[in-house]
């Protein structure tokens, strides 16, 4: 591993898009700080990334526990004193399918705590580390439904709409300090979050996707890898759809 390897912190790294992003960035030569709740799964991803030559540390925690997130950054701060945090790739998120009339406010609070509250806190703490070097990149996960809406997913869509608004605002706020802020907006990606969809429902969704197939986590990860690369150094405030034409 080169001394100059970019350092990327990835949340939700134990599965789905987060895991795929970890593998893609490991392959691209990044040093990784992986965060997720599931210790066992996280350690497996660590092993997989190490096999690709990456230096990897793992931290098991629940991102809705604000004190735990603060403690993580207190722990990272001395480690990152002489090298920059290059990327925050925030993939952790929760999906909730519920019609408006059947939305419990306890569920709403949980969803907003993770999809919005934790996102703001992570951006706040990561950007402070990046400000030291006047460089860095925040990549968040929005969703196709943030723009188009989705019956039965109003609260989830609203939480992802908040992420998109956060990206545009932070890109304006942090750009003068050299920090880029972007998001990917996946369409229907086959991950644990969508595993409960029936085959009939999947077939029905595919009819609305221009490419007539569902997406894979590694297809989102390769876009994240691009955004984290020097090739995207002039891109900020962008919500990049990765949806096979679902949003057309």
């Amino acid at each position: 591993m080169s001394e100059q390897a970019p350092v990327s912190l990835i949340t939700g790294a134990s599965r789905g898009i987060g895991r795929a992003a970890a593998l893609a960035l490991a392959k691209a030569g990044h040093e990784l700080i992986l965060v997720a709740r599931d210790t066992q799964a996280l350690e497996q991803v660590q092993t997989d990334c190490q096999a690709l030559g990456a230096l990897v540390s793992v931290h098991a925690l629940d991102l809705t526990e604000r004190d735990a997130v603060t403690a993580l950054f207190r722990q990272l701060q001395p480690q990152l004193q002489h090298k920059a945090l290059s990327n925050l790739v925030h993939c952790a998120g929760q999906m909730q399918d519920a019609l408006l009339a059947m939305t419990r406010f306890t569920d709403l609070d949980k969803l907003l705590a993770l999809n919005v509250g934790a996102t703001v806190q992570l951006c706040q703490l990561a950007s402070k580390l990046m400000l030291r070097h006047k460089a860095g990149h925040l990549v968040l996960l929005s969703s196709k439904v943030a723009e188009s809406g989705s019956a039965g997913q109003a609260v989830y869509a609203a939480s992802k709409g908040a992420v998109s608004a956060l990206v545009k605002s932070l890109a304006k706020e942090l750009g003068p300090s050299g920090i880029r802020v972007n998001a990917v907006a996946p369409g229907f990606i086959e991950t644990d979050l969508t595993a409960h969809y029936s085959n009939d429902k999947k077939q029905q969704l595919m009819q609305n996707i221009s490419l007539r197939r569902l997406g894979q986590a590694n297809e989102v990860a390769s876009v994240i890898e691009f955004l984290c690369s020097d090739k995207a150094r002039y891109i900020t405030g962008h919500i990049l759809a990765v949806d096979g034409g679902f949003s057309l």
């Binding site: 603060t70 950054f73 207190r74 701060q77 001395p78 004193q81 402070k128 580390l129 400000l131 030291r132």
Partner: peptide
């Protein structure tokens, strides 16, 4: 950011 870095605190 500078103060946190110089004094190694958050």
């Amino acid at each position: 950011a500078e103060l946190e870095n110089v004094f190694n605190l958050m």
